[in-house]
Every structure is written in structure tokens, then in C-alpha cells.
Amino acid sequence: MAKTELDFRGMSCPMPIMKTAMAFKKATSGDVFTIMCDDPGFEPDIKAWASETGNVLDSIEKKDKDIIATVTKK
């Protein structure tokens, strides 16, 4: 089960979600991704994306301007 860090800081909608989806397409079930993004829309977006795609949002936290989400591929 691979662990990957994705840095999407500086990108704006819809790129972080697109890039997340692209990374998940290549991943296998159980892979864990830590995604960093400074677009404020990313927080609701990653929640919506995870609930729609069935991938598991393990945690989401804010550090200064950055939003850090940990998502496991279903």
C-alpha cells in the first residue's frame, strides 16, 4: 500500500480535483494520499469528491493557508 504526497498549492478549481482524480486512477485499493492545497474551495470539494467516488477521506486539517487532506483509495 503506497503512500503518496501530492502538492497542489498554487492551483485553482478544478485542477486540484482533476489532479487528485488522475492520481487515484493509477493507484490501487488501499493506497494513501496526502494532498496539500491552498485553494479555499478545496476543503468542500475534496469532501464532495470523496463522498461521490467512494474513496475514504481519513482526515482534513488546516495549517495556515494550506488544507491537508488524507484520502485512501477504496
Binding site: 478549481c13 478544478p14 480535483i17 482533476m18 487528485t20 482524480a21 461521490e52 467516488t53
Partner: peptide, 11 residues
């Protein structure tokens, strides 16, 4: 095209 990309990302 934003919506199209979003929906594609949603699978």
C-alpha cells in the same frame, strides 16, 4: 468545460 472536467474527476 469546468463542469465537464469536474464531473470526469468525479468518475
Amino acid at each position: 468545460f469546468i463542469i465537464a472536467n469536474g464531473a470526469l474527476a468525479m468518475g
